[in-house]
Simulated assay, not measured.
Amino acid sequence: MPAKSMSRSAPIAVTVDTVASSMLTVQTSGMGFIDITRETAKFLTEIAAREGALTVFIRHTSASLTIQENADPSVLADLMTVLDRLAPQSFSWTHDTEGPDDMPAHVRTMLTATSLHVPVMAGRMALGTWQGIYLIEHRARPHMREVVLQFVGKAG
């Protein structure tokens, strides 16, 4: 079915003059979603990002990243329920050296993402109204997680 209407803004072309990186360290309190949107936006403000691309990358195999709704917390609760069903701790996993939540955490990471790409336009992430960036802790106990933030584009 063809679209009823379609429009596009004028292209913005810039010369890349900046590659800026920062390590975001997040202390988790166990399984769940942690909103890192504000801290990520703060990084862009600090480097005076204008136009470009932001990469968000987590340096772990038992925690992951996602862009998800940030308005209704029941969405995050339902997503945890789905992950529990897809990768249950009660399954007879072969890899259980670090506990019953270790292998399910690896599966959950595989099902979600270890990196995100977010366009930056006019100094802001081009996220939709209800979108936020989340670190998802898949382990039951607290962990210190490292997230690399890297902007490539025009700044200043």
Rank of each mutant, 00 (worst) to 15 (best):
Ala41Glu: 03
Phe91Glu: 09
Ile58Arg: 00
Leu116Glu: 01
Gln27Lys: 09
Thr18Gln: 08
Gln131Ala: 12
Ala63Ile: 03
Ile133Phe: 09
Pro142Thr: 11
Met80Phe: 06
His106Lys: 14
Thr40Asp: 00
Val19Met: 12
Arg59Ser: 15
Thr66Ser: 12
Met31Cys: 13
Thr25Phe: 12
Arg124Glu: 14
Met1Phe: 12
Leu24Pro: 01
Ala48Leu: 10
Ala10Tyr: 02
Asp84His: 05
Pro73Cys: 04
Ala71Tyr: 06
Arg145Asn: 02
Asp35Ser: 07
Val75His: 11
Met6His: 04
Leu44Val: 10
His106Phe: 15
Ser5Asn: 08
Gly123Asn: 04
Phe33Ala: 04
Ser115Lys: 14
Ala87Arg: 04
Ser90Phe: 02
Ala53Val: 12
Trp93Asp: 07
Ala71Ser: 06
Phe91Ile: 07
Glu98Phe: 13
Trp130Asn: 13
Leu116Cys: 02
Ile12Cys: 01
Arg38Glu: 08
Val147Arg: 06
Ser90Val: 05
Gly132Trp: 03
Gly32Leu: 06
Asp84Thr: 00
Ser9Tyr: 06
Gly153Asp: 05
Gly123Phe: 00
Thr81Ala: 15
Gly52Trp: 00
Asp72Trp: 04
Asp78Arg: 11
Ser21Thr: 10
Ser64Asp: 09
Ala41Arg: 02
Val16Phe: 00
Val120Trp: 01
Asp78His: 11
Gln150Val: 00
Gly52Thr: 06
Ser74Gln: 13
Gly128His: 08
Ser92His: 01
Glu98Leu: 13
Val118Pro: 06
Pro2His: 02
Leu127His: 11
Pro73Lys: 01
Val152Ile: 08
Met31Leu: 13
Asp96His: 14
Val16Asp: 10
Val120Pro: 09
Arg108His: 01
Gln89Cys: 01
Glu69Asp: 14
Glu146Ala: 03
Leu116Tyr: 00
Pro100Met: 11
Gln68Lys: 07
Val147Thr: 14
His106Trp: 13
Ser21Arg: 07
Ile58Cys: 05
Pro2Lys: 10
Ile34Glu: 04
Lys154Gly: 10
Ser64Cys: 12
Val152Gly: 00
Glu51Gln: 05
Ala49Phe: 02
Asn70Tyr: 03
Arg141Ala: 00
Val19Ser: 14
Ala126Cys: 15
Phe91Gln: 14
Gln131His: 08
Leu24Asn: 00
Gln131Tyr: 07
His60Ala: 03
Val120Arg: 05
Lys4Leu: 03
Thr112Leu: 14
Ala77Asn: 13
Phe43Leu: 01
Thr28Phe: 00
Glu98Val: 12
Ile133Asn: 04
Leu76Met: 10
Val19Trp: 05
Arg59Met: 15
Asp101Asn: 09
Ile133Thr: 02
Ala53Lys: 14
Gln68His: 14
Glu51Thr: 03
Ser92Leu: 01
Ala20Asn: 07
Arg139Pro: 04
Leu44Thr: 11
Ser92Thr: 00
Asp84Trp: 02
Ala63Asn: 10
Arg139Met: 07
Thr37Cys: 13
Ala155Gln: 12
Arg145Pro: 05
